[in-house]
Simulated assay, not measured.
Amino acid sequence: MSDTGGTSTNERIEVQRVVAAPARAVYDLLTDPQGHVDIDASGMLMDASGERPRAVGDSFVVHMDRDALGDIPDLHEYDVTVVIESLVPDREVSWSIIGRVRPPIGHVYGYRLEPAEPDADGRERTLVTSFYDWSAARPEWKAIFPLIPEQSLKATLGILARTVVRRGRAG
């Protein structure tokens, strides 16, 4: 596993990491509602409920605790609905968030998966790109972004790499 860095623009962050697992295993983790909680580096995701998404528009609920960021003292625990924006098996998953703010803010999180060179023993590896895009966010909300810094996305990729390998050994 290796970190291949990241890129940022004024309205999008992307980070990448090669993960020692096939794309199918990474995709399975990323489409598992509990998987989102398992790999979260922000500390905000506490639990999830709902079914694994099967199509664009499917959703599940994530139970959050904003105290982990310490940026909004009165927010504490709340729920958000994750709405799937793209879902391409073994290639991509992205989602928007519906929370308390109406209409929704308009930011999108997601992952792209690409084959990477096999390891020295011929085992499959996957280049995982995590992205966080607020280019379509409503103008009145853009000033608060990024809520999650690039370093948190990199840390989440590290946790993803560890988690998908452990799940593979347990499965």
Rank of each mutant, 00 (worst) to 15 (best):
M1Y: 15
G6P: 13
T7Q: 11
S8K: 15
E11D: 15
E11M: 12
R12I: 07
I13F: 08
E14C: 06
E14W: 04
E14G: 08
E14Y: 03
V15S: 04
V15R: 10
Q16R: 15
V18M: 06
A21H: 05
P22K: 06
A23Q: 03
Y27K: 00
L30I: 01
L30V: 07
L30E: 00
V37G: 00
V37M: 01
D38N: 06
D38G: 01
I39M: 00
I39A: 00
D40E: 12
D40T: 03
A41P: 09
S42E: 12
S42F: 10
G43M: 13
M44F: 10
L45D: 06
L45T: 10
M46G: 02
E51T: 15
D58C: 10
M64P: 11
M64Q: 14
R66D: 15
D67M: 12
A68D: 02
L69C: 02
I72D: 12
L75R: 13
V83L: 12
I84G: 01
E85W: 04
S86W: 11
P89Q: 05
R91W: 04
E92V: 04
S94L: 07
W95L: 04
S96W: 03
S96I: 03
I97E: 11
G99M: 10
G99F: 07
G99L: 07
R100L: 14
V101E: 09
P104H: 08
G106M: 03
V108W: 02
Y111Q: 05
L113A: 03
L113Q: 05
A116P: 10
D119L: 11
D119Y: 07
A120Y: 03
A120Q: 08
G122I: 09
G122M: 11
E124P: 14
T126A: 07
T126P: 08
L127A: 13
S130Q: 14
S130V: 04
F131Q: 13
Y132Q: 05
Y132K: 05
W134M: 10
W134F: 11
A137H: 06
R138V: 08
P139V: 05
E140V: 12
W141N: 09
W141L: 02
K142G: 02
F145G: 03
P146G: 04
L147E: 14
I148H: 04
P149F: 07
A155I: 06
L157A: 04
A161P: 13
T163P: 00
T163Q: 00
T163G: 01
V164E: 02
R167G: 02
R169H: 13
R169G: 11
A170Y: 09
A170N: 12
G171S: 15
